[in-house]
């Protein structure tokens, strides 16, 4: 099998992204590197990045697992909720 990037894999999934209401927000200026490292390693969708001293996150492509919430709520993760009803990922296999 040809190796796929995470973005390629997410491209196979069906999303109804709610562009205007991110269901997860992050503390951009959070600076405990050990904590940030864990979240970056753990996110199954690879949506967390650390660039120029800031944590960035995009909710587009989120698989809604809750990993970042459990690892880092009130630290890297400022707020975490489910997307609004019907929004977000829609698994067709599950």
């Amino acid at each position: 099998m040809a190796k796929m990037s995470v973005d390629d894999k997410l491209g196979l999934d069906l999303f109804h992204t709610d562009e205007h209401n991110p269901h997860i927000t992050v503390n951009e200026d959070y600076d405990d590197m050990e904590e940030i490292r864990k979240v970056l390693l753990a996110c199954p969708a690879g949506l967390y990045h650390y660039e120029n001293g800031k944590v960035t996150f995009s909710h587009e492509g989120c698989l809604e697992c809750g990993t970042c919430r459990v690892l880092s709520i009130d630290k890297v993760v400022k707020s975490w909720d489910h997307p609004m009803g019907g929004a977000g990922v829609q698994f067709r296999q599950g």
């Binding site: 099998m1 796929m4 995470v6 894999k9 997410l10 196979l12 999934d13 199954p44 969708a45 698989l63 697992c65 809750g66 990993t67 459990v70 990922v89 698994f91 067709r92 296999q93 599950g94």
Partner: peptide, 14 residues
């Protein structure tokens, strides 16, 4: 065992 297969979905869950 998975050679030649085509991934059709990627998912995550706790």
């Amino acid at each position: 065992y998975i050679e030649g297969g085509e991934t059709i979905e990627y998912s995550a869950h706790l």
